[in-house]
Amino acid sequence: MHEFALYGQVPRELHHRTLQQLAGYTRMQPVDASEIHLVFKARQPPGLDKLPSAGGNQGVLQPEVQRWRNMLNASLYYVQLVGEIMPAKSSYDKKASTQNGEVSMTNGGSGGDAKPDIHWTLEFRDTPDPGKQAVSTRLISRTPLDDGNLVTFLDHFGYEYVSRYMLTGSKFYDIDTTLYLHKVLVLPQTSVESAMTDLSFLSNISELPELDGSGGALLQTSIDVVDGNNPELKDKATRQLLALKEGFKQAVDLTPGDRLALDTRLIVNRRN
């Protein structure tokens, strides 16, 4: 799957007006959206240093050795566990019948005791395509994950926990285009063991520090295309985003993302 996207900065003083404009453009009310992002980086495959290097007295590598060396030298990437925070369900919606037929609450009988449901997804985003592009285009992959120790799962696949942050804001939808006006919040860092379970900050999200000290927000407009290499689908997505850019040019300057800023590859020191 490929993502086509444009990005724009919204100053703090224009945040409310931009929300109104997005609501008018999409003809819908904003949908509250918050996501917890856990960042993981890939570990360098073991055994790379044991493979012989070409040059010097060793001469040219044999084809089989060269193939393995190229595989181990392939680019490594960051991936993320993204937890979409769903609205908390009131315990009054969760009822159970007792043996004598009476109705009792299964969650303590108080709506305040309900915990938000979090849907986790393993997300990979490639570096945007090179060259001058009208919109940012890159390969993405989202894999829903069920319950379990997801951190251990990623560790077994060669990924280690780095840090976490949070996105919070409002989403709008226009046909197949998603418009996400959001801010990046800094989460309290914790150990890898409690990165997913420590959710105490959800009770006071408004007190979390913002990454952008000016209070500005980011507007991301994006379209997900199953086959981004299909010229017809690619052209359609690009035209839709450019039309959106034209419609919002007086309010938000939507541009392709900086490729270096969106680079998801690790910088790894390798032995030549």
Rank of each mutant, 00 (worst) to 15 (best):
K115D: 02
Q44F: 06
V268F: 04
L72K: 15
L167C: 09
L48V: 06
W68P: 01
P256F: 04
G215A: 05
G112P: 02
A96E: 15
S170M: 10
L122W: 10
D32T: 10
H2K: 12
A261P: 00
R138W: 03
D113V: 13
Y165L: 08
V192Q: 06
L187P: 04
T178W: 01
H15F: 12
L122P: 02
P256I: 03
S97Q: 12
A23M: 05
K94V: 15
L199T: 10
M196I: 15
R27S: 13
R27K: 14
D212C: 04
L22F: 06
D49P: 02
L260I: 15
G101V: 08
L218F: 03
L187V: 04
V79G: 04
G131I: 12
P46E: 02
K236C: 03
L48P: 04
G83L: 04
Q62K: 09
L167K: 14
K94W: 13
A54E: 08
D117L: 07
K245Q: 13
L51C: 06
K89H: 11
Q250E: 15
F157L: 15
D146A: 14
Q44G: 08
T178Q: 12
E232H: 11
M86D: 12
S34W: 05
Y173M: 10
P116C: 10
V225Y: 01
L14Q: 14
M105E: 14
E207A: 13
G257K: 00
S91A: 08
Y78P: 00
L233E: 05
D113K: 11
E3W: 01
R69D: 12
D235G: 13
P45V: 04
T106P: 01
N100R: 07
A42K: 09
G213P: 00
T255W: 02
R164E: 05
D198F: 04
G131Y: 07
S200V: 13
E207W: 05
V31Y: 05
G216T: 06
R43N: 14
T152V: 05
Q62M: 07
E3G: 00
E13K: 03
R43I: 13
A88R: 14
G8K: 03
M166F: 14
L48T: 07
L51D: 12
A42P: 02
Q220E: 15
Q20C: 09
K171M: 09
N204G: 06
F157S: 13
E84Q: 08
T197H: 01
N107P: 03
L72W: 04
K171C: 09
Q29A: 11
M105S: 12
V192C: 04
V79T: 11
L139C: 08
L242K: 10
S194V: 13
W120N: 04
A243Y: 09
Q240N: 11
F248G: 02
E64P: 09
D113C: 07
D147T: 08
S170A: 12
L22Y: 05
G131L: 07
P45C: 07
L61M: 11
S136R: 02
T137P: 00
T168S: 06
D146H: 15
G59Q: 05
G216H: 07
I205P: 00
K245G: 04
R265C: 11
F4H: 01
D155Q: 11
L187Q: 03
A96D: 14
P209V: 13
E210L: 10
S53W: 08
R271N: 15
V225R: 01
Y161F: 12
I36E: 03
S91N: 13
I205Y: 02
V39P: 00
R239T: 15
E246F: 07
I175P: 00
T264S: 15
R265K: 14
